[in-house]
Design a protein around this nucleic acid. Structure first.
Lengths: 79, 79
DNA sequence: ACATAATGTCAAACATACATAACATCATGT
DNA sequence: ACATGATGTTATGTATGTTTGACATTATGT
């Protein structure tokens, strides 16, 4: 899961991490972590960031079908 | 944050919650909670669900700019 | 009447996103 | 040389997504 946040931030008059964080309601540390891909944000945060840059979520965050962990299938209920 | 998961599930040959959960690596309980909007999923889960139905994230999950809680602005660092 | 499948719901554990606070480096300017 | 702003990073705590297991209702079929 990669993203274009850093690039979009530079394209937006070199907006700072702190400024971006302020506008979308996050801390600058969280913005930094997202830019570095240390974790993928919540869907809500993804929408807020994408909306700020006038983009769709899939234009800002790039996802690949097998790109994640090979999801350990949950058990759900055993009967 | 509303979504079309339940509708899309019916359109896909009445796929069951458990079946959908199995295919995207979630439990049926989580699918039920997402359909009812009890919480918004992670971005990763949103991508997996949207991809399964051949849709974009914003086609499956509908987000409104002010729709959320009036996010209590974080402090970040005080100097 | 009994079984089974699909769904709702709940409580407790667990995983991870996010905040807060602190300290660090690097660049720029005075 | 000193200050300031932007970013990296780490540790700790809180909020919330997710699993697991259980029990319930409703419908359908035998």
């Amino acid at each position: 899961m990669t993203n274009e946040v850093r690039l979009l931030r530079f394209l937006a008059q070199d907006m700072t991490q702190a400024e971006l964080g302020r506008r979308v309601g996050l801390t600058r540390q969280t913005i930094a972590a997202i830019e570095q891909g240390r974790y993928s944000p919540s869907l809500d945060v993804a929408f807020r960031i994408a909306h700020l840059f006038g983009k769709r979520v899939d234009e800002v965050f790039h996802w690949q079908p097998g790109g994640d962990q090979e999801t350990k299938t949950p058990n759900s209920d055993a009967s």
